[in-house]
Each structure stands twice: as structure tokens, then as C-alpha cells.
Design a protein around this nucleic acid. Sequence first.
DNA 1: TTGAAAGCGCTAACAA
DNA 2: TTGTTAGCGCTTTCAA
Lengths: 339, 339
Amino acid sequence: MAPKIKDVARQAGVSVTTVSRVLNGERYVKDDLKERVQRAIAELGYTPSHIARSLVLKKTNLIGVIVPDITSSFYSTILSTIEKTASLNDYNLMLCNIIEDNDKELKYLQVFKQMRVDGIIIMHEKLSDEIRELIMSLDIPLLFSSVKPADQPFVSVIIDDYAASYDATRYLIGLGHKRIGFLGGDMSDVTSGQNRYIGYTDALAESGIPVAIDYIRFGDYKTQSGYNLMKEILNCDTRPTAVFAVSDDMAVGAMNCIHDHGLKVPEDLSVIGFDGSQLTEQVRPQLSSMEQPILEMGKVTIEKLLDMISGNEGAPVNDVILKHKLVVRDSCKAYQEHV
Amino acid sequence: MAPKIKDVARQAGVSVTTVSRVLNGERYVKDDLKERVQRAIAELGYTPSHIARSLVLKKTNLIGVIVPDITSSFYSTILSTIEKTASLNDYNLMLCNIIEDNDKELKYLQVFKQMRVDGIIIMHEKLSDEIRELIMSLDIPLLFSSVKPADQPFVSVIIDDYAASYDATRYLIGLGHKRIGFLGGDMSDVTSGQNRYIGYTDALAESGIPVAIDYIRFGDYKTQSGYNLMKEILNCDTRPTAVFAVSDDMAVGAMNCIHDHGLKVPEDLSVIGFDGSQLTEQVRPQLSSMEQPILEMGKVTIEKLLDMISGNEGAPVNDVILKHKLVVRDSCKAYQEHV
DNA sequence: TTGAAAGCGCTAACAA
DNA sequence: TTGTTAGCGCTTTCAA
């Protein structure tokens, strides 16, 4: 049985209060007592129970994080920043990976409630009614990161997905492309589904380019999905000269599909991705991408959450909008009519 | 303030004991009382405090996991399986990402101790003396996954890295290659550094192929490292005809470097990786790899740990060795003298 | 079948 | 400056 504060007190010949005091670095402890306590702690190999402490302090230093898929390079990167910043502030992460599994998410949220976590970060936006209700009733500081569920009074740390998508499309148009394919996400996602789609269509419309249904497909942000959708698009009579995918994973899937069809990126087809995950530099040609400031996003997310937890004035009342950035690599090329 | 068991008891007009009983599904509660309690729980939106429960039960259902880098496709995949299996068994994960940061690891281990986690999983093997000592004194079930620290009385879930590396090298030799480069890991890692290196050299030696220092480099398992090392190797007078990298990330870095030098995989140079991460299928040509059974490894890890926690007879006393498997894709090709 | 009360390991009034 | 003691919210003897 691990030694408890009482054991330390006995060993040091003081009261538990005194031990508690030196543990918590309070003043009002004479040096010699403090030393005796510290020696006792060392001798016993005592470590205070965070559990007991949490119970009385009503503070767990735990943050629950719900991620759609840690296997994705985007989420694992943002998660690693979150972890880093949390750890720096003495908070610990409880990891929940939900793979489109509403029941699992609900269960985890309940666990978070039971655990009395100090804060919650959610990185997906498809909230079931049950989950939304639970969340609303939770009374635990909560932040959405990289997504924004529709019509909810929650705060998000996010980019302007519409503008980012608009800008990405404009980039391709600026390169002279007119037949621009679109590999979209889930249209029931507002942030990464609808907004990115509308950004794309608006940019086209503004340049007087008709939206061609044949060039538009929707998937699940993953590589395989990008591959499959691209395959369908390549079967069109006149294939597009450029493709915009709303995730880097999808873009890579598309590039692979193009490659497997004996075509070349960017000579035959330009491809641009979205996110700015490390995959962009791991593939050849390197993938141009409309990048989210992933590292900053993770950092800001946790910082804002901590502000909410401690009731700082820094606590956000509105969404925090971070800047997107086009990073040009090797996967796009100006379109020339007759090559 | 969240309602507590006492509130429920009052609302239902019973004692806290009775509430506790229905909470824990005990028998010896008459139906009508049970119903009253359940109604009270619903009305109050009561959720039992896991903290308080942990304190008396001395069980937190928490598992601490130490990962070197969740950003790596290998670790994020194994982590996602661990999370899945843990969740299925009502255990929650505390995530610790240590990036070659001994202090952070030590701190986390201490947090694990304070938190009274029920079990610990560690996925790296470079233990500092301080950490080793702490671990030994911990008295918490602990398992290493995918690595095995040298000379320690700890149990690992692991493949036979020596044999896997040997087999990978033999595969290249079987393809007719004689000048075989090696992109190794950290030689202070026994599992993935030394064992994989020795597997390589032994395979060469057995076929009478001299070990050529020029073709051998050591890095840190990451893409960038693979790229840089490959660059050095390509500068040799006669470059190798095949390269074996001890991680898929490194192999992809090597492929990229080869590509950037205007050479082709596998026509000019065969490349084989190690791990079986999803990157293998995201790159072109698809990467042949000596694969670890990542999914199974995660699953077995958590299952064995749970056995240790509950003192089952299934609890492992020795390392659990899983089978490696060569998966041939498109990055290797038989060597022909004059092409 | 139910309830009173002790105790899990700690902190924080309060008193000394 | 130090110690006594009453909780924190729950489970679990023990007795009724």
C-alpha cells in the first residue's frame, strides 16, 4: 500500500496539516519542520494522491479531448500541440478517438462528466441531438477546435473555411484553369463540408465559370475516398485540368489515382489540398495546400480553454478565427490551352 | 453544483446506501425503491463522481500511455487500437507524448503515480536511470509495447526485430541485390536500433556479401532523416541497388530523395520499409514493407495489461512475440546486371 | 431488504 | 507557526 500523508506526518513527527503545507509550498512552516517533512517524504517515497486532492479541490487538471481519428495526420498534429501546451500548464489529456461512432462519443462525454474533467475539447461537428443536449447540460468549459457545429452557442477555434476554400479555388482560376474538379467532404458538416463547398462554387461563379456537377464529388476526407472519387471524375468525357480536394489526405488519394491512370501531376492535372498536414511534403510531387495553422490552432485551443477554466478575462466569448495560408509546392501548374 | 448521492437519496426518500446499491446494480433492493431512486437520478441529472468512487475503490480505470510521437503514422495507428480496446473495456487513456524529452517523461510518470493509474504502457525504450528507477518502484502494472528496453525485467509486446530485419534483407538478396544500403535507427535503441542492424548485417554475412560502411547510415526514423541519409548514400561512387530503411517514414524520405535526384524507384533503386504504416499505400510507388502487426499489437498490449491489472492468469510473465510479415508492393525489383 | 456510520487520502477552516 | 477536525462524494461493513 502506497504511503499516505498520515504516514509522512508520523514519520516526520508533525501533523498532516504541516505535511500538506510543505506539499503545497505554503509559507508558515519553519525550516526545520519543512526539512523533516521532506526527508520523510523521500524516505517513504511518498506521492500525494491526485484523486483525494481532486475530491476536495474540485479540480482534476484533466481535459477530455474528442478526436474523430488520431490516425489522420491533421488530427494527430493538432493533438500533439494540444498535448504539449496542456502539459506545460500541468493539465493532462484524456483521449477519446471516435470513429463516426455516436454511441462511443456519448459514452465518453458521460465519462468526462463522471471524471469531472476541468474542460473539454471537441474536434468534430456532427452532434447528435442526444450529444448536443448532454453537452448543453454539462456546465464544463468546452471548446470546439477546427470545426464549428451549426447554430450552437459554443465557441470554436477555427479558420474561415469559406474564405480559405474560396482562395484556393481562386488560385487555380488564376492559374488559368476553368475545368476545376472538387473533392468535397461531408455536406452535413458545416465547417469542412458546406463552407468549403460554397467557397468553391462562389469563386467559380464570380469568374463566370459554370459549376459542373460531373467534376464534383463528396467523400470522407480520407485518402481512399479521394482515390475513389478521382477515379469517377477521370471517367468524365473531358476531364478537369485541376482538382481541389478539401483535405490533404483526399488530395493525395487523388494524386495516386491520377498516377495510377498513367497521368501526371501537375502536367496533366493540377491538384491542391487543404489542411497543411505533413503529408504534403511526404509525397511527390509535393502537394500545394491551403493550410490551416495547425500548430497555432492547437496552442490557441488549449490556451483559450484554460482561460475559460480559470475564468480569466481572456476567455473567448466568440469564435477565434485564425488565418489560413496558401502554400505553393509542386502540384499545380498554369494551364495552357494547347500543350 | 452537481448533485451528489445525498441529494438523490433525499429526493427519493431513501438512504445513500440504497442509492449506491441501485447505482452498482446490486440485488437486495425492492423494485419500488429502485424505481424511486432511478426517477430521482433522472430528475436531478445525477452522475456519480468517478473521483470519489476511485478514492474508495482504489481503482481509477485510467491507463497512462507514453508515446514517443503521436504524429508518426506507426504510433498513431497503434494508439488508436489501444484506445479502442481500452474503451471497450471501460478504461480511459491518459495521453503522454514525449518527444525525446526525458524530463517530460519523468514528470508524466510521476503524474501517473499521483493519479493512481491502473496501468501504464510505454512505447519507447530509451530509459534514463532516473526513469528506470521510478518505474521499478512504481508497483503499477506496466507493459512495453513495440519496444524492449535492454536488461530490464519488464514485459514487452513486440515482434522479433532481428528476424524481421534479417528477413527483409534476405528478400532483397533474393531479388539479386548485392549492394544493399541500410538506413538504420538509433543504435542506443536495442529493439529498433541494434537488433534491426544486426539482422541486416547477419543476412549479408550469411550470403557472403561484405558489409559496406558507405551504404550504412543511422537516423531517427523520420521522413526527413531518411531523406538526408539517402542523400549521403547517393553520393557514393557506386550507389547501392537497393535500400532497406528501418521505418516506413525513413523509406519514404529515401524514395523522395531518390526521386528528387532524378532516379526512379524501383527501376534504379529498390526500397523496402519497415512497420507497415498506412504511408506505404499513400505513396507512389507503393512501398514494400516488413510489417509489424500494428493492429494486433495494440490490441494484445491492452489485453495483456488488463490481465495484469486484474491479476488474471492470462497475465504475461514473458515477452509476447508477434509475427512480422513481408508485404510486397511496388518499390522493389529484381536486380539485373546490365540493363 | 434497508440504513447508520466509518473511512478512502487529502485540504482548509478554525483554534491554539 | 502548528495542530485538530470537519468535510469532499462515494462504498461498505455492520446492525437492525
